[in-house]
Amino acid sequence: MTAPLLELRNLAGGYPPVAVFRNVNLTVAVTESVGLFGPNGQGKTTLLKTVAGTLDPWEGDVRVDGERLNAEGRMRSRTSRHLNYDLFRKRRIRARDVVRSGVIYVMQGNLLFPEMTVKEVIEIAPAASVGRSGIAAMRDMVDELFPRLGERWHSRIRYLSGGERQMVSIAVGLLALPRLLILDEPTLGLSPKLRVELSAAIAGIRTMGMALLIVDQNIEFLTGLIDRLYLFDHGTVDREIGSGRMPSRQEIMAMMFEARH
């Protein structure tokens, strides 16, 4: 059996000294689309930031293709009034390694680079990770997925609406030619019309054979786009719903809340 594209093993993390999530086990297979659903403030974004390498994991592993991206062992939390431990402490995971392994994280409510135009951002995006080859083809793809962006090509990101910003963020992620695209709350603050547009675009990305990990509060939006669903609650993944039949909103709510209360 081949190793899954992304595998989290007993991952724990947070903002020291506050532990936010623990014992997270999650896999995403190649070309699979996986959803993560859970209430606000339970640590989904913190988990994704840890996977993306901007936060250090405390414990457990982040593996891509079976290869561990983080440093081995647990994080030691030492502080001192006299010494700057940051001088000696290395990052346990590096965002650049994660990007290089083909996992791209699209931030939630991302402002990106407010003073740059859409054109400038789209142009540096591929240069950052894959070099200059095949940019034209990727540009066409972006035009096809998000026709709206063509009209705003020369506007600064600051002047774009929330939905347009979200599209730029996803386009920037796509231009890095990822194998797994992690979308954090793509529908946050979007109008229903834009949500439909975005949903179509994400469905389009899915048909390209790219693996997806989508986090969203909107369960109808989510279930239409995924093969498998993880429920995230109280800082850990506590249920996995297989590929058979996607439950309805009521069923999920019942699963998440009635078991406990």
């Binding site: 993306a52 390498g53 901007t54 965002a95 650049r96 990007v99 290089r100 791209i104 994280y105 931030m107 991302n110 402002l111 990106l112 680079f113 407010p114 003073e115 740059m116 400038e120 951002v121 142009e123 540096i124 995006a125 240069a127 950052a128 990770s129 920037v172 890095a176």
Partner: peptide, 22 residues
């Protein structure tokens, strides 16, 4: 591209990091 990346890092360090900029 380098100059634009420098501006990008200045404007949003985290997003730049997630894009794979050094």
């Amino acid at each position: 591209a380098t100059g634009r990346s420098m501006r990008a890092v200045a404007q949003n360090r985290e997003a730049a990091e997630l894009m794979g900029l050094r």
